[in-house]
Write a protein that binds this DNA or RNA. Structure first.
Lengths: 327, 327
DNA sequence: CCCACCTCTACAAACGATTGCAAAGTGTTT
DNA sequence: AAACACTTTGCAATCGTTTGTAGAGGTGGG
C-alpha cells in the first residue's frame, strides 16, 4: 500500500541503503544526496515501516502499560502522564486493563512482552515471584509496587500519612479510624504501615477490616466506622472516602461536623464532591512520566546503569471534609 | 533472547517451515510430527515473534483506539469493552489520548496507522474531510460520529432524548432547558437535534449557550439555567449535569424539588452522587465491542461486505434528580 | 605521476517468520 | 511392475528495513 524504501531509492536514483542512511544518519551522506532523497521521500509520502524496522533493530519503540482497572479514576491520570512522556520520546503505548484479575494480568503481560521494548505495570496484583519471573523475559518497570529490587516508581505513602495524621491531630482528633483496602494491594499495606507509624504514641488508631476499593466498599464501611466511635477516618482511597461521606450524609451524620474524612489519591471527583474531599494527593501523571523515564534509562545501553527506584512525594490537600474534632 | 522457530526446528529435528505449519496449520502435518514440534516448542518456551510474523503477513493483530480524554469517565467504559472484545479475537489494543486536541489526534492517527490493522476513533474532533483522508490510509471505524459513509457505531440519541422528554413531560414539566456541550462535538449536535424534535409541539425548549463538557462547564451554566425559569434541564453529559446539581445545591435550590436535572451517558459517578442522577444511558462497553466487530468484519477478506453503521439503543435511567414540576 | 587516503555509495546479509513449489516417501490401481 | 495420486516435508523466496564491508571516485602529498 504505502511507498517502500525501494520506491524512494528508485525515485532518487540511489540504493535503498543510501535512503536509509540519508534519512537516519544524514551526516554520513553527501548533503546533495540527502536533499534528493528527502524530496523523493516527501513526494512519495514515504513513511518507514516500523514493523520491518523493529524486526532488524529488535526495538519496537512501543511501551506496554498494564493497569488493574481503567474505570478507577486514579489510573487514567497515570496513563495520560505515561502517554505524554512516551510521545515526547517518540514511543507509542499499549494499554491493557486486567479487571483486577491477576491471571489475566499475567497472560496480558506475556502477550504484550513480545511487542514492546519495556513493560510498565501499575499497581500489579501479581505475586513477587511472578513479577521477578516476568522481568527475566522483558524489561520491567513497576509503579506503586516494590518487588525484589525491580525498578519502581513509588509514592511517599508514609509521608502522606504523616501529614494526614498531623493535620487531624492539630484539629484535636485523638481517635482515628482506618478503612483499609484490599489485602492483595501493596499500596494498602504501605499506607497501613505508614499510618501506624504516624499514629504511634500520638493518637489512637482503629483499624477497620478490609473493604473493596470501591464506592460501595466505602458505603459498606460507613456504619462500622460510626460504631467505632472515632472522630476522624482515613480511607484507603478517594473512591471509598466518597462512599463514606455519602453514607454519612444519608445517615444524617455531619461531615466534617461530627466526623472528619480523609481520602487518598486525589482523583478528579474528590474536588467536585460536596463538601470537597480532603485527601492525600499522589502525583498520577508524574508517576506515569517517571515510569517512562525509568524504562527508557533501562533500555539505553549507554545508560548510567539502572536507577532501581524513584520515590515521588505525596501531598495532603486540605479541603472540606476535615474540621475540628467535635464534642 | 527468546527461542526462535529455528531453535524449535533443531530441537524437533525438522525444518523451520514444518514448525510453522505444525503450529498454525496442523492438519497439513503428520500428527506425530505435530506432537514432537509441540513438545519442543513447549520445552523451549517458544513464542512466535509477532513482529516477524507481521512483516510477512501484513497483519499486526493490533487495533488502535483514539479517544479525546481518558480522564472523562465516559471513555474508560468504551476502552474496556473494546479491549475485552479484542482479547477474545486475539488482538491487542493501542490506546491514545488526544487531550481534545484535533491536531494531536491527526498526528497520533497517522503514526498509529502503520502499526495496527484498523484504527477506531471514538468521538473524533477532526473534520469530516480529514477523517475521509485518513480512511484512505488505514481501515477506519468511527464511534459516536458519522462522517461520509465511513463505518460507524452510533447511539440512538434521538430515542434517548425522546424518552427524557417523555419522562419530564409526564412529570408536568412544560419548560425545559438544554445545557449544550461543545460545538465541535458531533454527539452534541445530535442530541440538540434529537431534543428539538422530541420537544416540538409538546414542551417549550430553552437552549442555553455552549459550555465546556466538564464539571466546571456545568457549574458555569447553573446560574444561567436558574435565570431562564425552566423547571427542568437536560445537560449534554453527566459530568456537566453533576456540576449543575452541585451548584444548584450550593445556591439552596432543591433538586428535584425546585428543578429537575437529566444527564447523558450514565457515567459511574452518576449513580453515586446524591441525589443519584437521572440520565440517558449510552452503552459504553457495547460501543467498544461493536467497534471491534466492525473493524474485524472490515478486515476479513471473505467478509460479507461492510456493515457501514450500527446503531445502539439509549436508555433513560430514572433516578433521584427528576421529580414532579414544582409549584 | 603515483599512491595513499578519505568520502561517498552500493551490495548483500541479516532479522524471524510464512508460504508456493518441488521432492521424497507411501499406498493404490491397472 | 509401472504409473499415479496423495501425504508429508524441506528448500528457498519474501516481507521492508538496517548495517557491515567493499569498492568507486576524487583529492592531496610526496
Amino acid at each position: 500500500m504505502g511507498a517502500t524504501i525501494r520506491d524512494v531509492a528508485r525515485a532518487a536514483g540511489v540504493s535503498p541503503s543510501t535512503v536509509s542512511r540519508a534519512l537516519a544518519m544524514s551526516e554520513l551522506v553527501n548533503p546533495a544526496t540527502v536533499e534528493r532523497v528527502r524530496r523523493a521521500a516527501e513526494s512519495l509520502g514515504y513513511q518507514p515501516n516500523p514493523v520491518a524496522r523493529g524486526l532488524i533493530t529488535g526495538r519496537t519503540r512501543n511501551l506496554g502499560l498494564i493497569v488493574p482497572d481503567l474505570a478507577n479514576p486514579f489510573f487514567p491520570g497515570v496513563v495520560k502522564g505515561m502517554q505524554a512522556r512516551a510521545r515526547e520520546a517518540d514511543y507509542a503505548v499499549f494499554v491493557a486493563d486486567t479487571d483486577e484479575d491477576p491471571g489475566l494480568e499475567s497472560r496480558l503481560a506475556r502477550k504484550l512482552a513480545k511487542q514492546v521494548d519495556a513493560l510498565v505495570l501499575c499497581s500489579p496484583r501479581l505475586a513477587d515471584d511472578e513479577l521477578l519471573a516476568l522481568a527475566a523475559d522483558v524489561t520491567l518497570v513497576l509503579l506503586h509496587r516494590r518487588a525484589g529490587d525491580l525498578p519502581a516508581v513509588l509514592a511517599d505513602n508514609a509521608g502522606g500519612m504523616r501529614q494526614a495524621v498531623g493535620h487531624l491531630s492539630a484539629l484535636g482528633h485523638r481517635r482515628i479510624g482506618l478503612v483499609a483496602g484490599p489485602v492483595s494491594s501493596w499500596s494498602n499495606s504501605e499506607r497501613v504501615a505508614g499510618l501506624r507509624a504516624a499514629c504511634a504514641g500520638r493518637v489512637e488508631l482503629t483499624e477497620l477490616g478490609n473493604f473493596a476499593p470501591t464506592f460501595d466498599g466505602g458505603v459498606a464501611a460507613a456504619d462500622i466506622v460510626l460504631a467505632s466511635e472515632v472522630t476522624a477516618v482515613i480511607a484507603y482511597n478517594d473512591v471509598m472516602a466518597l462512599g463514606l461521606v455519602n453514607m454519612f450524609t444519608a445517615r444524617g451524620v455531619g461531615v466534617p461536623g461530627r466526623i472528619s474524612v480523609v481520602g487518598c489519591d486525589d482523583i478528579p471527583q474528590a474536588a467536585m464532591s460536596s463538601p470537597p474531599l480532603t485527601t492525600v494527593a499522589v502525583p498520577k501523571e508524574q508517576t506515569g512520566r517517571a515510569g517512562v523515564d525509568l524504562a527508557l534509562a533501562l533500555l539505553d545501553p549507554a545508560g548510567p546503569g539502572p536507577a532501581p527506584a524513584r520515590e515521588l512525594g505525596a501531598q495532603l490537600l486540605v479541603r472540606g471534609t476535615t474540621g475540628p474534632a467535635g464534642r
